[in-house]
Amino acid sequence: MNPAWSVVLFTTLAGAAQGLVVTLALAELASLPMSTGFLADALALAVVLLVAALVASSFHLGRPARAWRAVLMWRTSWLSREVIALPAFVGVCAWWWLALRQGWDLPWLPVAALVSAAALWLCTAMIYACIRFIQEWAQPLTLANFTLIGMSSGLVLACALAALAGQRALLLAAGPIALALTLAALATRIAALRRNARLRPKSNLQSATGMRTPQLKQMSMGMSAGAFNTREFFHGRTPALLRKVKNAFLLLGFVLPALLLICGLATESTWPWLLALALQAPGLIAERWYFLAQANHPQNLYYQTVA
């Protein structure tokens, strides 16, 4: 597939916001001592990230003005469910922020935040995992990766904020969890890479055309200058570049942040947390780009030659 930057940014930003809110909600439910001002500011940042994600996602639409229609088919479409789950999650976060600012006592809000964050992860991941013939996506690891990568980035963000704001209790509790989940995300991402490297495509040129001879070559795609089919489903990058992106995202998204988290836990200084955040952000954007680029759509079988 040709990765759309709107989708890359949307899923990365929303994932980080979900991870941040889940971290805050769990800290609140565990009664960790946190200043209300910090909690409200962190929630406000999550809402800003989510709104930025929503704006990014609208660039994926040909007709964004009609986007409201996308809530209608929630019975069958994971995309429609996501279009419902995202504003619901933003609403809960904004409500929680408002409750903190107004001093309302609504103890169920962190629970609602947890549930709606989980629902959004499920919807987002299932958009990809439910397409059965994109074999790179149609697997449970897609769900695990969306959730764990979102949690890792949210925890790293929460730790950086806590380190900046001097929220020691939160930093001490979230730091080790951030390290553990970053390593867990690395493990499931590598598992998905390994599985996809061994993947055998179910479709081939013979099944696509019904011509059963093993010597089958496309001479003409039926057009000379490309079409939607060649623009949307081919990334046009070399395998060497893809390998570089893969190595870069494993290093920047997981390995280096994990080392910096260890450094932060050991030294009690602020900079490792901030540096971990600064390195992980481009790393995870590269990860999502690679996730989309690696998907090999069976329709590509029909577009092998420009003639």
């Binding site: 055309t209 001479m219 079409a227 003639a307």
Partner: peptide, 10 residues
């Protein structure tokens, strides 16, 4: 609708 062309066999 498109018409594509294939060469089958050797």
């Amino acid at each position: 609708n498109r018409v594509q062309t294939y060469e089958a066999g050797s």
